[in-house]
Amino acid sequence: MSRDGTAVAGPVRVLVADDEPMIRAGVRAVLATDPGIEVVAEAADGHEAVELVRAHRPHVAVLDVRMPRTNGIDAAAEIRRTLPDTGVVMLTTFGEDDYILRALGAGAAGFLIKSGEPEELLAGVRAVADGAAYLSPKVAARVVAHLASTGAGALAERRDAARERVAGLTPREREVLAHLGGGLSNGQIARRLHLVEGTVKAHVSSVLARLGVDNRAAAAVVAHEAGILPPPPPEQR
């Protein structure tokens, strides 16, 4: 599925941007293990990434946070502003919590740790291509911990604030938020909750508006802060 909910014709087209050739080669090699994913372009900096996204119109752009000329966050913001059909996945390291928060504000939908498992990269690209948000569990935990350690307030205060925001949701919206926190797409949520996908899309829009966030990744952070976790798939119950 594309980010507007329509089916993606053919393989998921991906751009990879990192200023280190070995990292780009590694990301490409991992993505090549999935026959349904095609790397259509590589960029060595954020400026080049934006230009190549304009030229190739990939479904997903995988961007390193720190790159010369234009960094990944500014590139993500420009891509989301001018080419909203391309979802953005950010590659981060364990020392870049502040960058993750800024990338959330720039509209990135996926966050992965460079040292994570290859399966997470494939899952993240697939999820974002499907219109979902994907936060590596390690990223989500670090975002919540980092927020708690900043001037934004103590962990208990953050949790209370998140729970207060969530309290304004309907029971169905809370269910949808839990699945957003689990990185599910609208189609996957619809199947889990036995709803029409259009109904789920409407619930997601309402959840974002009620929480006062701009994208699914930011909503996922609120879900993690509030301690709302998705139920396990039926086969795991």
Rank of each mutant, 00 (worst) to 15 (best):
residue 89 V to Q: 02
residue 217 A to H: 00
residue 82 T to A: 14
residue 133 A to L: 06
residue 213 V to A: 08
residue 177 L to N: 03
residue 53 V to Q: 03
residue 122 L to A: 04
residue 44 A to N: 03
residue 193 L to F: 09
residue 164 E to A: 14
residue 128 V to G: 07
residue 51 E to P: 01
residue 2 S to C: 11
residue 233 P to K: 09
residue 103 A to P: 02
residue 168 G to R: 10
residue 93 T to P: 05
residue 102 R to V: 04
residue 94 F to G: 08
residue 20 E to G: 06
residue 107 G to E: 08
residue 138 K to F: 11
residue 139 V to T: 02
residue 32 A to G: 11
residue 17 A to S: 12
residue 219 A to N: 04
residue 134 Y to M: 10
residue 167 A to T: 06
residue 202 A to E: 11
residue 191 R to P: 03
residue 48 E to I: 00
residue 29 A to R: 14
residue 46 G to K: 00
residue 194 H to V: 12
residue 45 D to S: 01
residue 34 D to C: 04
residue 54 R to N: 06
residue 62 V to W: 00
residue 227 G to D: 09
residue 82 T to M: 06
residue 10 G to F: 12
residue 170 T to D: 00
residue 137 P to Q: 12
residue 79 I to M: 05
residue 122 L to C: 05
residue 235 E to D: 12
residue 96 E to A: 12
residue 220 A to P: 04
residue 179 H to K: 06
residue 64 D to Y: 09
residue 147 L to H: 08
residue 180 L to T: 03
residue 128 V to W: 03
residue 115 S to Q: 13
residue 26 G to E: 06
residue 47 H to A: 14
residue 162 A to I: 01
residue 106 A to Y: 00
residue 162 A to L: 04
residue 230 P to L: 06
residue 74 D to W: 05
residue 208 L to M: 03
residue 233 P to C: 10
residue 132 A to C: 06
residue 236 Q to D: 15
residue 9 A to H: 09
residue 164 E to P: 00
residue 172 R to Q: 13
residue 96 E to M: 09
residue 86 T to E: 01
residue 214 D to N: 15
residue 211 L to K: 08
residue 215 N to R: 04
residue 55 A to F: 03
residue 72 G to D: 07
residue 54 R to S: 10
residue 38 E to D: 13
residue 123 A to C: 05
residue 10 G to Q: 08
residue 215 N to V: 04
residue 36 G to R: 13
residue 158 R to V: 10
residue 196 V to T: 12
residue 80 R to I: 15
residue 181 G to S: 05
residue 159 R to L: 09
residue 228 I to N: 07
residue 73 I to E: 01
residue 183 G to L: 11
residue 73 I to T: 01
